[in-house]
Design a protein around this nucleic acid. Structure first.
Lengths: 229, 229
DNA sequence: AAGATTTTTTGAACCTGTTCAAATTTGAAC
DNA sequence: GTTCAAATTTGAACAGGTTCAAAAAATCTT
């Protein structure tokens, strides 16, 4: 796809991204100008655009890099937690920890969350690669957890948990309480409920209910387009 | 607040809005330029800005006007439906019917849905007036319905139903299926579930569960700032 | 190393939302 | 009808994201 990984342009790219993020963190996404970034990186505006298609592409690169960085920390984190709630909580906690310095600017990323067509949306085709890896974390959390998940729910659960995380992140971004305390309260109140519901879902009588819920789910979830040969 | 309703500026305003909406419908929000609109309305760009603070203000005016227009149709619609599911469905159906011609451009309104601070977000302080009236429709639907709602849930239900509607609208806007068939499927599958859950919620054993759910709810819902005297 | 080719960089636009001071028009008071 | 203030309109800017042809630098070929 990309013609070549490029030799040392990689360094320039990294420098631009670095300078951009520093400014995003400090003054926010909107207040930072592409001209600011170009100047900080010591190059012309046009050159900056040679390395990044758009201002938003910078945020995308950040998103990508973040996912990369988290990748490594999941295994050890999972090794330290046994029960499902703790495992899921840990995945989410790590993400928050990582996003912390960028909380303000993340508004810019999630501004477009509601438009699944927008490249920057966490739900867009453009972010599928990142999304899939993020979902894999929850797959991992569930797999090694202590809760037996019904067969029919199994293929959906990781994605559902990822969506749950997305909701929390959205809440967190706009949470103006001290230290985002309300988000943590929400997490600690909702996660146990989810896990309880999961345990309840295994009860014999619950078959039909589960069926209805999953039926609903498949209606909502876009059918993944079959990748052509 | 507003100094005066203005005499005939109202007509100019209406003309601008009319021309703007025609173009939004035809070419979409983004592809329509403020210069286009000014020209269509037969006036200078600056004059257009005299009547509308911003391009988004045009969408806001549309949103406002829509709410106004729906207001009248609710009573008769409710008179024709007895059971709760039908009543709620009717409120939602009316909204879809009204938004139909603007479906494409509504992406622009809901683009900012995820940012509760953004004026155009249906969740923003700026849209509270409209929102409150929309919620009132659901209040009406519940009040005259055939389902007895538990006391502790009562104050929350209308808003919850409104949020449910918002979710459906969001889904609908991005639903690319023929005639947005998937949205209707979703509605017809989810609404009965909601009503069933509501009926179940009244069962004696459900008290604690309901309590936990409502507790969670009040954590999520921003505490409305007390209006100062 | 000269020439050819590709990658980077530059600088000058362009576009579109928005702002604003300076007219112009309108309407009320006299 | 003249006068004055307020409401409206104009035209010319500005800002910031984006584009692009042309120049410069780096890399490759022989």
């Amino acid at each position: 796809m990309t013609p070549a990984p490029s030799p040392k342009a990689e360094a320039t790219r990294a420098r631009i991204l670095h300078e951009a993020l520093a400014r995003f963190r400090e003054k926010g996404f909107d207040a930072t100008t592409m001209r600011d970034i170009a100047q900080a990186a010591g190059m012309s505006l046009g050159a900056t655009y040679y390395h990044f298609e758009s201002k938003e592409a910078l945020v995308m690169a950040f998103y990508e890099e973040s996912q990369e960085a988290l990748q490594d920390r999941i295994p050890e984190a999972m090794a330290a937690h046994r029960d499902l709630a703790s495992r899921v909580r840990e995945v989410i906690r790590l993400r928050f920890e990582q996003f912390q310095p960028y909380r303000a600017m993340l508004g810019a990323l999630f501004r477009n969350a509601a438009d699944p067509q927008h490249p920057l949306s966490p739900f867009s085709p453009a972010t599928k690669g990142i999304r899939d890896r993020a979902i894999a974390h929850f797959e991992e959390a569930v797999r090694g957890g202590d809760v037996k998940v019904p067969k029919d729910l199994q293929p959906h659960l990781p994605r559902l948990l990822w969506m749950y995380q997305m909701g929390l992140i959205l809440f967190w971004i706009h949470d103006r309480s001290e230290g985002q305390a309300r988000t943590w309260t929400l997490l600690d109140k909702s996660l146990p409920l989810i896990v309880s519901a999961l345990k309840l879902a295994r009860l014999p009588l619950m078959g039909p209910v589960r069926g209805a819920a999953i039926d609903l789910l498949t209606t909502v979830l876009e059918p993944e387009p079959a990748s052509p040969a």
